[in-house]
């Protein structure tokens, strides 16, 4: 099996406190995997390790076959272009319009000319369901759902291989939740042929069962289950059973 991300004997400590214990798993290329777990289980820490935002204490992390715990600052920054990240509250730059937010990575990291940038940004915004009128508004003038769409468009701008979503639907109403998940699945489909991998952090069990291919269940810094949805539903682990019955 082809892995986009691989953890080998990974320990993570903050001071004396061990946050992640001896993690060994691989996240499948071209699939949607959800990292599920209660608050404080270590999900965000796991995400930060994947992006090289915090170092591991022990073990190796391979992303797209590159050992990222060996990379140094500059090459790590360069490497992060393989990722897109959608933040919990979108994290749009509040001093830029939607258009400029999406154009931002293109202006920073490509040599595209203004007309090409314009076309690309409008295409990205259209693909995530943002109308042209909203493109020239500031984030403060947009609803939470729209901000998330713009955040997704920005994360897609550099055509990353791996997309990370940190609690993409927490704080959203049930309808917008499904809209956002549809968007995630749609994005994955549109980029399927280039082995686009999606990793979602969530504690929303129902949406997870409905939309993901694989589920990785984290409890107190340990992986207690990592399987496809069908197998996951049959898990006998008591914590997972409790989660499933929510």
């Amino acid at each position: 099996m082809d892995y986009a991300i691989e953890f080998k004997n990974v320990d993570k400590k903050y001071g004396e406190q061990t946050i992640l214990h001896d993690l060994n798993f691989g996240i499948h290329k071209g699939k949607i995997t959800t990292i599920l777990g209660f608050s404080g289980a270590g999900k965000s820490t796991l995400m930060k390790i994947i992006m090289g935002l915090t170092p591991v204490t022990e073990g190796d992390v391979l992303v797209l076959d590159t050992k990222i715990n060996d990379l140094h600052d500059m090459s790590l920054r360069e490497f992060r272009k393989n990722f897109g990240m959608v933040f919990q509250y979108a994290a749009l730059f509040d001093f830029l319009t939607s258009f400029e937010n999406v154009a931002f990575p293109l202006r920073e990291f490509t040599k595209l000319k203004e007309p090409e940038i314009k076309k690309k940004v409008l295409d990205l915004l259209a693909a995530t369901g943002i109308q042209v009128e909203a493109a020239y508004k500031l984030p403060s003038e947009l609803s939470g759902g729209m901000r998330k769409r713009v955040g997704l468009a920005r994360a897609l701008a550099l055509e990353p291989q791996i997309m990370l979503y940190d609690e993409p639907t927490s704080g959203l109403d049930p309808i917008t939740t499904h809209v956002v998940y549809d968007l995630i699945v749609d994005t994955a489909k549109r980029n399927e042929e280039r082995q686009f991998t999606s990793v979602i952090i969530s504690h929303d069990i129902h949406a997870t069962l409905k939309y993901s291919d694989y589920i990785l269940f984290l409890e107190k810094g340990k992986v207690v289950e990592h399987s496809n949805v069908e197998t996951f539903k049959k898990s006998v682990n008591p914590t997972i059973r409790r989660f499933l019955e929510l």
Binding site: M51, L53, R77, R80, M85, L92, E108
Partner: peptide, 13 residues
């Protein structure tokens, strides 16, 4: 609001 993280994730100091 995680905008600083967003910069870092894009590889911008």
């Amino acid at each position: 609001t995680e905008q600083v993280d967003a910069l870092e994730v894009m590889g911008i100091n």
